[in-house]
Write a protein that binds this DNA or RNA. Structure first.
Lengths: 352, 352
DNA sequence: CGTTTCGATCGAATCGATTCGAGTACGCTA
DNA sequence: TAGCGTACTCGAATCGATTCGATCGAAACG
């Protein structure tokens, strides 16, 4: 049996140091780069490391000593498929990853699906970013807070001890509604994102609206209500084209149909557009559609949605920046980003 | 100044034990659940923990002692936006997450973009899953191997020390091509995924094809070649509708256009379909389109692609199962999953 | 030539838990 | 009453590094 064939447990820094004939502390200096080490010594240590196939200092041990794991958690409320099907969330994540840049930081993705039984006290993390979390902020946050790690929440309700990265959802929604109003629309309906964790689709009632827990959904609804207090609506189970389609049919296939529909996402707007097409309703001549988010959907071609474009990547960068600031011991300020009304081809003056 | 207002560093198990008047080992037993503890003692410890706002044992310290971090890394070659825009990858991830189930395991997502300078030796992980990685397997794998952790690769080339979770890409592709052949098609072109990390789009030449490093791309191409050695083609920069559209135009807008196109993904197929529509080419009467993956794209309606459906979620589950087996000390076997030819409405007999 | 300074190296403490073997007290059986 | 098992608790070693302060020799300075 060859010596190389024996099951080799991970060699330790001590083993490398011994083989190189130096102390553990010196060997450590070679790998961490802190402190002066003679070139000859460094080479000997590295040679020993190569010989032993040493893979570098154990990340866990290093983390313990340094008090940093190099991991930032992104906590979503949905299953990954749902969370990442939304282009906004993906763009956000890329913003985060991009802001990490050279920092040696990993992204721990934790889907906090209801009843999934994940334990936020177990995984290693230096900070947490809550993405699209609404319902049980309190319990999750409590666990994280006890861990004494910085918590950043995106588009969530204000919560003590949680740094907010927010978008002007309400104001943007109002601006969009205002735009429709100025175009002469008086009969307006809305297609909302999920109202709560149950994600029940159906007509919007006062009770359901009042009981809504989804923060983004509520904010956008509130902005609309400032202009159209009486607007009817339909809530969906998620930001998908098919949900938008179903909502569109429900709202449009009736005599007293609205002249404009405010969809809470561009994907929903796309579904509404298709529903209108199938029902033979001309867009934007007979029906104006306002989207949300500012995803560029080439599937909508030849249309381009009038939409409220939000800086999703910046949102991610802001979140990452806040995390780093907090880890550096600073007290970062909450961030409020702004959406922009981008006028496309799906809105026009109201039909008489 | 209130005592609560003082900056409170994370309390340790020792602090809790001291306050409860027990030894550290006993306190540890309370939290880890191993070993018998008197009810009265347990309550005292928990009370002390609550009083100090102790958030449970430090994950890093626990990891060091236990030799497990509870983190599985998923390493992708692209930026996250690109990697997760592919529905197959998302489904895969969900399969992984689902297989984790109750195991207290987190998913560390590492985008290994070229030149991104991520260091695979730094982040904590118990095992690694390589997803859609092709080019520098060797260097990445070397780093991971030195860490003595199990490595699982999905749809990659065989590599020593790497457990393969594979799909019968080549055979499936051949089957699809065979199907087209039986329908009478003789002039066939293909739209491929990215050939290599440069992701250059353009006509498929012998040189480019020979130099291709993308494993999935190559396998699917090879299967096609077994039936249509002379097929022309166009390589894209990624699995997007727009790329498929561009390829479609390039291949179809010419007198000697093919009677069938094999797209290496359903999204590419969708682009080709749109291109055909815009060029006034009837599908499937004048042009048959074969997709790949088996994503159900309702945007294709009223069409449903003839496609090679692959079990993406199962792929994720298989990868997770392999990881757990390896961590349990077993020697898991490589897995080969099978695609299924699903006949839709985009293929028919070749035009005369 | 004595003293200071700096570079290189090392020993030992430390990070915060887990775990094993040992010790104690108590109740039960013979 | 001696012997023994059980239930509970504790001390100490350990996981694999980092880092502070001390040491030592050699070069630089006055």
């Amino acid at each position: 049996m060859e010596p190389e064939a024996t099951a080799s447990p991970r060699p330790t820094l001590a083993a490398v140091a011994a083989r190189a004939g130096v102390s553990v502390s010196t060997a450590s200096l070679v790998f961490s780069g802190a402190g002066p080490v003679a070139v000859a010594t460094r080479d000997r240590v590295l040679a020993a490391a190569t010989a032993l196939e040493y893979g570098g200092p154990d990340p866990t041990a290093r983390s313990l000593r340094r008090g940093r794991s190099g991991v930032i958690a992104v906590i979503t409320e949905d299953r990954l498929t749902d969370a990442f099907r939304d282009p906004m969330n993906l763009a956000f994540l890329d913003g985060v990853a991009q802001a990490f840049g050279d920092e040696r930081t990993g992204l721990l993705v934790i889907p906090l699906a209801a009843e999934s039984g994940v334990d936020l006290s177990a995984p290693p993390m230096d900070a947490a970013i809550l993405l699209g979390c609404s319902l049980d902020l309190s319990s999750s946050v409590e666990v994280l807070r006890r861990r004494r790690i910085p918590i950043v929440a995106v588009e969530a309700e204000p919560f003590e001890g949680v740094l907010l990265i927010d978008i002007d959802n309400r104001a943007a929604s109002r601006r969009g509604a205002q735009y429709l109003f100025e175009l002469g629309h008086r009969r307006v309906a809305t297609v909302t994102l999920a109202l709560d964790a149950t994600r029940t689709a159906g007509p919007l009632t006062l009770e359901r609206e009042a009981a809504a827990t989804g923060n983004t959904t509520r904010q956008r609804l509130a902005g609309l209500r400032e202009v159209y207090p009486e607007a009817t609506g339909w809530s969906t189970s998620g930001s998908y084209r098919a949900d938008g389609y179903a909502a569109g049919v429900a709202l449009l296939d009736r005599p007293d149909r609205p002249t404009a529909i405010v969809a809470q996402s561009d994907l929903l707007a796309l579904g509404v557009l298709r529903a209108a097409e199938d029902l033979g309703i001309g867009v934007p001549r007979e029906l104006s559609i306002l989207g949300f988010d500012g995803v560029r959907l080439d599937e909508a071609a030849p249309h381009e949605f009038t939409t409220l474009a939000q800086p999703a990547v910046e949102k991610g960068e802001a979140a990452a920046a806040a995390v780093f600031a907090a880890l550096a011991g600073e007290r970062p300020e909450p961030v409020l980003l702004h959406s922009e009304l981008r006028v496309g081809t799906t809105t026009s003056v109201a039909p008489r």
